[in-house]
Design a protein around this nucleic acid. Structure first.
Lengths: 203, 203
DNA sequence: GTCTATAAGGTGATAGAC
DNA sequence: GTCTATCACCTTATAGAC
């Protein structure tokens, strides 16, 4: 229904499947709906991708890669730790801003599927160790307060991801349904989050 | 009226419905499954609650009340702000620990249902204004650094809720599938979160 | 109140014409 | 490759016996 400027059907299906699966989830998604979105017949979905499950797996894997922060890219560059941290928050929030529904989708679909998760995580190279090592170095060098590196990482991703997942709730509860105000506040966090973290750990 | 046996069908259904809906979500839940959990026949569900949707609404409302932090209870007491903050984190994390699947359930089901959300939020008295006012007072009294009160509240709930929603992911990515280690780390956060926040905002 | 049986409509998947 | 038609099954909900 969206882009009649056909590239090929195969890609159209994936694009449509991403929209529907990420919006409705595996259980809520309907093959008919995906076919409509792709502007094709339902039977073609099975011709190209055999089953709903196989189609979902492709979408899920793609979404997960977009969701997993690219830690190496930021933390293996030159520069001081605080700069890297600011850079990471900014970069990651930009990614999530372009894919605002992915975090909720991933977090929902991942429940009770540790096998699929483990397989995916093994496939990707997330290199959290690079970050952990750098945090330890900062502590030993006396540049930040002592803190469990993993707990600090949990702090960081929590502050980045949660507001995006909880945006509808924040809009309703904290901003009295003023979605523009909420939108604006979440945007400001691109700088605020790093400030908040650095204030807490700096010596 | 007098039969207050532990086998009250009406309550059994709700308990079973909570288990199934919170675990599987509205789309993934099956009336047959709920009936099995309650140890009764599927038709009885409709006898007592008419439709799947009505049953879901009851479960959702109950879950939302458990999810919404009881701000008044903590922040209207006597004491300094930091104590209240520590108290809130501890209390809220205890609530979530007893209902670990509720945050993910609520966050998933709330997507694209702002109407239901608004109605619920209006019904509850969350009294975020009490907290906002106290934060502003702390700033004006020069006891904490200047900060947007709403942003601080987003920080706080993010740090509390996200790790619980993302626990499977954290277990896999950060703790290399060692779920005991993850469990232990999340428990330590009951004190760590408040420390982290206070470190950041204290003067 | 609780059950069995079944209606009524949806859903993933396939067969076969073109 | 793409379509129409259809199958086989599943799911919510109701009817009616007891």
């Amino acid at each position: 229904m969206t882009d009649k400027k056909d590239k090929n059907t195969e890609e159209n299906i994936i694009t449509a499947a991403e929209r529907v699966f990420i919006d409705k989830g595996m259980d809520g998604a309907r093959m008919q709906h995906i076919a409509d979105e792709a502007g094709i017949n339902k039977a073609l979905l099975h011709y190209y991708y055999r089953s709903k499950q196989k189609l979902f797996n492709i979408v899920f894997t793609t979404a997960f890669k977009a969701f997993a922060p690219d830690l190496i890219k930021v933390f293996q560059r030159e520069g001081d730790f605080f700069s890297k941290l600011r850079n990471f928050v900014k970069t990651y929030l930009d990614v999530l801003e372009r894919n605002p529904h992915i975090p909720g989708f991933i977090l929902h679909e991942i429940r009770h599927k540790p096998d699929q998760l483990i397989q995916l995580v093994g496939g990707l190279n997330l290199d959290i160790d690079v970050v952990i090592r750098q945090i330890e170095e900062e502590i030993q060098a006396g540049r930040i307060k002592p803190i469990d590196p993993k707990q600090l990482m949990i702090h960081i991703v929590s502050l980045c991801i949660f507001p995006i997942v909880a945006k509808p709730m924040l809009t309703a509860v904290l901003f009295k349904t003023d979605s523009d105000a909420c939108e604006k506040a979440l945007n400001e966090r691109k700088d605020l989050i790093a400030d908040f973290i650095i204030n807490s750990i700096k010596l």
